[in-house]
Simulated scan of single mutants.
Amino acid sequence: MIILAFFVLHWYTSLFFQTFFLHRYAAHKMFTMSKTWEKIFFILTYIFQGSNYLSAYGYGIMHRLHHAHADTEHDPHSPSYSTSLFDMMWKTKNIYTDICKGKFKVEEKYTKDVPEWHAFDNFASSWYSRIGWGVVYSLFYIQFATHWWMFLLLPIHFLMSPVHGAIINWFAHKIGYINFKTKDTSTNLLPFDFLMMGEGYHNNHHTYGSRANFGGVRWHEIDVTYLIIKVLNWVGIIKMRKSASEVSLEKRKKVA
């Protein structure tokens, strides 16, 4: 039970900081926060993503490119231009790495206001750090695992963030249902997104990219991350922006 609880905890905490800090804040600026809180969330992202730490700078720019070029040859991660899931993720990894190292040149509009803390990113993304976290996870399993099959979960801990990315960037362009007709292949994976904390409402998000609530189009679409965002806004840690797409949501016609 301890191992399964640890796995679930790591899954959802890592996912939360990916969707809240990297996606909705770094890439889309759906809300604002002070520089002090920004630094705190950098550190919390590192703690909870661990060996899978993703740079807000690299993630933010790459995700903006994804929205600008969704399902075209310029999309950093499109199933339409990859031979397999692993091919897509390898391309994604290379583009992300080149962005972080300044080798991938992009227009200024894709870098504007993206959070930057390169010294911290360099430390958190170093192999010393990644291997160190891997050792911590392994020792935890050695101490608490009660069955051999539990060790099969370890590789997911090592690659938690890429696994989360693969689920959305591949499967949410392959299977699921749609609420809105778009120019890309985005879908909503689950009627109630208990697995990806709202990220699975991908078709909704591609239709209204600046809308903080990825769900809410149908009665069963509950975006758990959005509920947490509302609490953080209420206590003053962040300040939500008034989204134009929030106003126009009801004007778009859903696909039956």
Rank of each mutant, 00 (worst) to 15 (best):
H205T: 01
L44A: 14
V224Q: 07
D71M: 03
D71P: 09
W127F: 15
H205L: 00
A124Q: 09
S55H: 00
M240W: 06
D98K: 13
M150S: 13
E199F: 07
F120K: 05
W11S: 07
E199D: 09
M89V: 02
L4D: 06
K35E: 10
G102F: 01
V136T: 03
L65Y: 03
Q18C: 15
I40Y: 02
T83D: 08
S84G: 01
F180H: 08
S80C: 09
I3G: 00
G50D: 10
M62N: 13
Y128N: 15
S78I: 04
G198H: 04
I2P: 09
A212T: 11
M160T: 02
I2N: 07
N188M: 09
L139M: 00
A27K: 10
I95R: 08
A5K: 14
H118I: 12
I142Q: 13
A68T: 15
T36Q: 11
V114L: 05
T225I: 00
I237P: 09
N94P: 06
Y53M: 04
A166V: 02
K174I: 13
F214P: 08
G216V: 11
V136W: 01
S138Q: 06
K35Q: 12
T13W: 10
K105P: 12
D98A: 13
T72I: 07
F158K: 08
F171K: 00
M30T: 06
A244C: 10
F42H: 04
V136E: 02
L15S: 08
I43C: 10
K91Q: 12
K39N: 07
H28E: 06
T45Y: 10
N52W: 14
